[in-house]
């Protein structure tokens, strides 16, 4: 299955670039597997802090999107 994927990537991008891309995606996949689950036991406080962090990042993304929207519409 993985070999087929690599072959199709190499067909699209050419042999050399294709092999670099397939090696990189393979490496990223193995990193994702290696770090699939957090290794430390998170306390309630830590989980809460991470939840706040997610909300904070969503807030910033919304803010950036709003800024982009105001620039596009020329009202900034």
């Amino acid at each position: 299955m993985r070999d087929e994927k690599m072959e199709s990537i190499e067909r699209v991008f050419g042999e050399r670039i294709g092999s670099i891309i397939s090696e990189s995606t393979g490496k990223i996949r193995s990193i994702n597997q290696k770090y699939a689950t957090p290794k430390i036991k998170l306390t309630g406080g830590a989980k809460f802090a991470l939840l706040l962090l997610r909300f904070y990042l969503i807030f910033l993304v919304v803010l950036l999107a709003y800024k982009f929207w105001t620039i596009v519409h020329g009202s900034a």
Binding site: I31, N32, K34, Y35, A36, T37, P38, K39, I40, L50, L57
Partner: peptide, 12 residues
Amino acid sequence: IFSAFGSFWGWF
């Protein structure tokens, strides 16, 4: 970060 919090926070 990768090791303690997993790949989502790691890649981010």
